[in-house]
Design a protein around this nucleic acid. Structure first.
Lengths: 321, 321
DNA sequence: TTACGTGTGTCAAGCGGTTGACATGTTTGT
DNA sequence: ACAAACATGTCAACCGCTTGACACACGTAA
């Protein structure tokens, strides 16, 4: 059987209450008993049961994090930062990879509530999950309008789109297309597209579906269909990389014949594909801001704070444009 | 106040015991009462408190996952698979990014124990964490010898190293160096180096430290120091990418003058840098095997199972060799 | 001397749900 | 008609820890 507080009390020759007092720094404790208790804890190799503690305190210090997949560099880095910040504040992360599937996301939300998480950070793409309406559950959404009451943290997508497209124009592109990912419903990321459409006379936007080979195939088809294309604004770096790959296959010179700009600018992309011109999102800032906002909501259930936070993006010019 | 089991019982006009029976499918329940209870649950928007449940059942269905960082594509993908598999088995993941720091890892291990996790999967690099000796705590290590009693799951690193180096030799390289990462203490990954050293007459292994620019700088220095180098076996894809970048900067033609092979072969790398020849680790298999092993240990605390599992790797030939 | 501050102990209730024991019915099958 | 299976309820104990109430020491300052 596991050693429990009572055992520590016996070993230290004090009462359970005293042990609890030492553990929680409450009431009066002399240095001597404190030491006795601490020694007993060490000797018995005692770990307080946080499940019991949580039950009583009605606070678990758990934060649910729902992302499409941590294997994507953007969400991977975001998750890293969020976890690190939470950890430094004494919170733990329950990781949920929704794969962008509504049913999965619902199931995760339910699970998180059952586990009494203190809050949820969602960077997934599904609307209409009633679970999120659970009374007073603090939620922050990242780059996604979840519900009218859920605050959103994201980067300046319109500006990002504008920077990207303007850069292509400045570089002399005359036939620019936009390639949009599948994950772009109801998100502020639609502003990227909006910016593109605002800047271009005859905007042509393609929407791609999930999948690896599919992506490359679709892009090949697009480039073959529209050989006049000399600029691509891809809505994330993975897609931009696929465009690059197809261009190589088709012997299209980048950037001479075709310029490509991506979006996200994660560390991983910068390392693996430093040639790619891209729009860099302030991932660490997004993480910081959303955690802070969530903490505010947890500590102060009344105040909702600002509904939307928009963080600045940067154009990172490299060799593909 | 949150609605609890008792409230559901009242609303449904049954006893708490009956509600519990419905919730847990125990004992005899008529269809009628079952419906009544389920309706009450829906109407009241009731979510069972899993903290209370866990306390009683002495089982949390939590698994701790310790990785250096999920932002690295290898650990990101591994985490994704592990989380997905666990989720389908009814387990939740507590995510811990240790950054490879001993103190952090210790703190995480302690936290996990306090939270009564049912098991831990560790893919970090620190030895001598006594916490892991916590009585009967099921632990599986990935690609790392944690302690004599902790089972290890990993891929065939020696074979991987051999495949890589032999491939370079086959391609005609005569002056092959090996670049090792910083995270390679006490890990089976040392077998990659061993293979290299076994195959090469005058093996030259460099060890790099953490950091972004540092890596590129160090590699530049290495290549300038040893201009005769015509083959690099990098111990992961990120490092291989850095080598590629430096080669471009120094106007060294790859693969004509210099051949580069990496290690890991994650989806992300395949997408962002498909040109890279690399050794592909069976990440999904590693995830499956380690989760399965952990589940075995959880369900059957006595049987330890096989101590080490070695999974096959594959050479992925592309354009850098 | 009185009163307060300090240090510790006992006791019991409570967090929300589970479970076993036991009682009391109502259906079935034979 | 009677045992067995089915359906539900009551009650109390328990999971491990926290907390408030209260009691009883011992100093020390007023």
């Amino acid at each position: 059987m596991k050693v429990k507080l009572e055992d520590v009390a016996k070993a230290a020759g004090v009462s359970p209450t005293t042990v609890s007092r030492v553990l929680n720094n409450r009431g009066y404790i002399s240095e001597l008993t404190k030491e006795k208790v601490e020694n007993a804890i060490k000797e018995l190799n005692y770990y307080p049961n946080d499940v019991a503690r949580s039950l009583f305190k009605k606070r678990t210090n758990f934060i649910g994090l729902i992302v499409p997949t941590v294997s994507n560099p953007f969400f991977g880095e975001l998750s890293l930062y969020i976890e690190n910040i939470c950890s430094s504040l004494g919170y733990k992360i329950i990781l949920c990879n929704s794969s962008g599937q509504l049913e999965k996301e619902k199931a995760y939300a339910t699970m998180l509530i059952r586990h009494q998480v203190d809050g949820i950070i969602v960077c997934s793409y599904n609307r209409g999950i009633d679970t999120y309406k659970y009374p007073k559950l603090p939620i922050v959404a990242i780059d996604h309008y979840l519900a009218p009451t859920v605050p959103v943290v994201g980067s300046d997508n319109y500006m990002g789109g504008k920077l990207a497209v303007q850069h292509l124009i400045d570089r002399g592109c005359r036939s620019i297309i936009h390639i949009n990912g599948p994950l772009e419903l109801e998100t502020p990321a639609q502003f990227r597209r909006k910016a593109y459409e605002d800047l271009i006379d005859n905007p042509i936007t393609y929407e791609l579906l999930f999948g690896d080979e599919d992506m490359v195939l679709s892009i090949r088809k697009i480039l073959l269909d529209r050989p006049e294309t000399d600029g691509i604004f891809a809505s994330d770096d993975m897609m931009a990389a696929a465009c690059l790959q197809v261009a190589r296959e088709l012997n299209i010179q980048v950037p001479e014949q075709l310029k490509i700009i991506g979006y996200d600018g994660t560390e991983t992309t910068r390392r693996l594909l430093p040639q790619l011109t891209t729009i860099k999102q302030p991932i660490e800032e997004i993480a910081k801001t959303s955690v802070k906002k969530l903490m505010d909501m947890i500590d102060n259930p009344e105040c909702s704070g600002s509904y939307e936070t928009v963080l600045p993006v940067h154009l990172l010019i490299s060799e593909t444009t």
